[in-house]
Design a protein around this nucleic acid. Structure first.
Lengths: 193, 193
DNA sequence: CCTACCGATCGGTAGG
DNA sequence: CCTACCGATCGGTAGG
């Protein structure tokens, strides 16, 4: 999607540390002094690397959006049955969520602290992503592979289940990301009954 | 559960207004001055009704927890098939979420701004609630009514789908709360395929 | 419920 | 990357 220039190492480190703090305490409740301390420097020194606190949040939120879109595109470009494409899209989504669950949690919960116009741009991207899942499910219904009275409703419910993952996923857990993804896909596609 | 004394009207009004602000801006980013302005009074005046900002958050989070437990208890006390009880528990959960979606959103996202020991107490309650769903699903599996390799996993996924509701529910929408609940139950219990 | 105010802390800057 | 600092704002209190 957007061509993202590689970050200088120090800047990338600031982003990573800030992401962990934003996730744990929330964006508004995380101070630049806490962030500086966690990095082993003084508050003022942060500003030789970044312009503002919000700049970090912006980069995290839009960077994750890029990752989700890239994963979806790769998962759905083959001419496979729609149900198989949906499974692959679920796997791709879960891979992004598990590869950096801290950034994912920030993406999911802290975007509202973006100021305009970034906030609206972010929401437009999120809508577009949900729309892609909705369209895929609708194609599946048209092809007779999927059954639901309301693809939009189904897409929201499906993504909601997936997006809860950063709240409990632990890299050292028993299930691998792909095993988690397949289990989620199984439950969501086949139901509990 | 806990016997909650009725609030004086002004206090209840403060809670309602604060809940709407906490939801829209987040707890940390909502100032007592904003809250006072929204209520038409001065910041200092709030403190003749409440002791602290956190007191409001505490009441909202634990009040909702009570509502969820009460709904679950009512839904599962009859001697019905487990699948029917699970459906009723979903309906009860969705009723709480839709009856006050602002308070539900605060319950779901802002609890982490509780200080100890309230935060740990809250998480223990939430775990207990998830455990009740897990146990119900496990009973359904044992009875041969439900099928899942992992009731804990299934409970998390199910609740995640339901808890996304406050993010898009509008009271003036086409579907009533009970219609939404039944549609969610249908999709979660029967799947998309 | 208001006025007047407290100490603490905030994001960010200037100058080196 | 640090020192020293800015004005603004924070949650909360005293006294009426």
């Amino acid at each position: 999607m957007s061509t993202t220039a590689p970050l200088r190492p120090r800047k990338a480190q600031i982003d990573r540390t800030a992401t962990a703090l934003f996730r744990a305490r929330g964006f508004a409740a995380t101070s630049m002094r806490e962030l500086a301390t966690a990095l082993g420097l003084e508050a003022g020194s942060l500003y030789s690397h970044i312009k503002s606190k919000e700049e970090i949040l912006h980069r995290v939120c839009f960077g994750l959006a890029d990752s989700f879109f890239a994963g979806f595109a790769a998962a759905t470009q083959e001419a496979a049955p729609v149900a198989a494409q949906l499974r692959q899209a679920i796997v791709a989504h879960v891979r992004v969520l598990t590869h950096d669950s801290a950034a994912s949690a920030v993406f999911l919960h802290e975007w509202r602290h973006l100021s305009e116009p970034a906030r609206s741009e972010f929401l437009a991207l999120r809508d577009r992503y949900e729309g892609a899942f909705r369209a895929l499910i609708a194609r599946g219904v048209a092809a007779g592979e999927l059954h639901t009275p309301d693809p939009a409703f189904a897409a929201l419910t499906l993504l909601a289940s997936l997006n809860w993952l950063p709240n409990w996923y632990r890299p050292e857990g028993k299930l691998s990301p792909d095993e988690i993804a397949h289990r989620l896909a199984e439950q969501l596609l086949s139901g509990l009954v």
